[in-house]
Design a protein around this nucleic acid. Structure first.
Length: 481
DNA sequence: ATGTAC
């Protein structure tokens, strides 16, 4: 198989129907493992993601394999849908490209005490209210305008916990956030002035691209005990929020890529692609990135918390309904974790870029009420298609990781060329899905036709032993960034 | 993803 413009062939072996192996060659330290059938791979004519899987396999300290999830596609340096663990006690690196520009981009699911049939007559009004209440698009305001850079620094240290303490949410919300809604080790003082400036006015905003707030309904339950523990039942109305750390996270990534491009030589590191800039995780530059990434992570968590409050107000007013947090989880992060590798316990820096952590049942990091089910995993589909709630399983080969979405097959440009925004809106409305967008082009770029089949992606993730299904959700209305 | 380009 040849990939894109690069004329050197990658040797790819199908190990199982759900798993391909890219054989080691050149400077690869480990093989590439892609959890996909050949049919699910992006078109190699416009996608270099398998070449990227092989490139990641050359990084210092990488162990086990360079992994790709079933939704893999071309990204900055690392593929989106990539997972890589490096041994930090043996020179293992951290790379901003392995996290992505939208640091701690993720998904939050809220469950209403409301059945879809009861909402039906009021859905239009609710969507209007959400359309008014949810700031979105490029530089278009936010739910919470911070008073000062000092207050932003408190938020960067405190995440969703800071937001709740300031009155934006309830204590129970934090029990249902990954990491309790706040990661430790953030150094807000280490962020550039530009990052702080960009962050001040965007707390509680969706942004654009594939970010959205969707009103959904539970269509099917696959795992009753898990659904019970997550608080989900058939016909229930839910809200899914997909967004990240906005301009602040983007600036953090840019700042540290630039620093690492210069610092790499000092550590004697060479990479096959400039976009894989990295430094040892346990170096001053590596620690600085981690501390800045943690601050951006807390920003993203607070962002989703503020949007939750805006959605709650709309639901209270228009539907007389309450929204409880099911879970909040990131799919763009690096974290320090202990894993068994070749019979030894190792401290790894696990990069997940467009990949979601999926801890198995009984994992010590789970809260007590989720210990028997495993970690809830939230997978947004595309507009007009299903979304999934999954759960972690034992024996996950990819450091307890799974997919994060449907995964693009067509570029934004190609999608916008082939689909008209207005027509897409009309089609969605004809299928009973209310649309509150911001730009016709933005809508067209997110056309479902530009993505893989979410059901096929999920079935592959399950078949590969990465997760199990808990519930399937279908869209009723979408507020588009 | 992103004040869609320093």
């Amino acid at each position: 198989m040849r990939t894109g413009s690069d004329q050197s062939a990658l040797e790819i072996v199908a190990e199982t129907p759900h798993r391909l192996r890219i054989e080691r060659h050149g400077r690869m330290r480990v093989p590439g493992i892609v959890f996909a059938s050949r049919a699910l791979l992006p078109d190699p004519a416009g996608d270099e993601s398998l070449r990227q899987v092989a490139n990641v396999a050359t990084l210092p300290g990488i162990v086990r394999a360079s992994f790709a999830m079933p939704d893999v596609h071309w990204g900055y340096g690392f593929p989106i849908g990539g997972v890589a663990g490096t041994d930090v006690d043996h020179g293992g690196v951290v790379s901003p490209g392995g996290v992505g520009f939208d640091i701690s981009c993720g998904v939050r699911l809220l469950a209403a005490d409301l059945d879809r049939d009861a909402l039906a007559p009021r859905l239009g009004g609710l969507m209007d209210a959400l359309g008014q209440a949810i700031p979105r698009g490029m530089r278009r305001g936010a739910v919470w305008t911070l008073a000062s850079p000092g207050q932003l620094r408190d938020l960067l240290a405190g995440g969703a916990q800071y937001a709740v303490e300031a009155g934006h949410g309830v204590a129970r919300d934090l029990l249902r956030c990954e990491d309790g809604g706040v990661v430790t080790g953030a150094d807000p003082g280490g962020l550039s002035e530009r990052a702080i400036e960009r962050g001040l006015g965007q707390v509680g905003s969706l942004g654009s691209g594939n970010h959205f707030l969707e009103v959904q309904a539970v269509e099917k339950i696959y795992d009753e005990p898990a659904a019970d523990a997550f608080g989900l039942w058939p016909g229930q109305v839910c809200v899914m929020i997909h967004c990240g750390s906005r301009g602040l996270g983007h600036q953090v990534c840019s700042d540290h890529v630039r620093l690492m491009e210069k610092a790499m030589a000092r550590y004697g590191i060479e990479v096959p692609d400039r976009q894989l800039a990295c430094v040892p995780a346990e170096s001053p530059d590596g620690r600085a990135y981690f501390a800045a990434m943690a601050a951006a992570t807390n920003y993203a968590r607070a962002n989703r918390q503020l949007l939750t409050e805006a959605a709650r107000r709309a639901f209270g007013m228009c539907a007389g309904a309450r929204l409880d947090l099911v879970y909040d989880i990131s799919h763009n992060l690096a974290s320090l974790e202990a894993h068994d590798v070749d019979g030894h316990r190792r401290r790894l820096c696990v990069h997940r870029k467009g990949a979601t952590k999926a801890l198995p049942p009984a994992h010590p990091d789970l809260p007590p009420d989720l210990i028997d089910t495993g970690q809830p995993v939230l997978i947004p589909g595309t507009m007009g298609t299903a979304s999934y709630v999954l759960a972690g399983v034992p024996g996950n080969p990819a450091f307890d990781s799974t997919c994060h979405g449907a995964g693009r097959t067509r570029s934004r440009h190609a999608a916008a060329r082939e689909t008209k925004g207005r027509r897409l809106r009309d089609e969605l409305e004809a299928h009973g899905i209310a649309v509150r967008g911001t730009s016709w082009q933005g809508l067209a770029e997110e056309a479902p036709a530009a993505y893989k089949d979410i059901d096929a992606v999920i079935d592959t993730a399950v078949g590969a032993g990465l997760c199990r299904k808990a519930a399937r959700l279908v869209p009723l209305g979408v507020v588009k960034g």
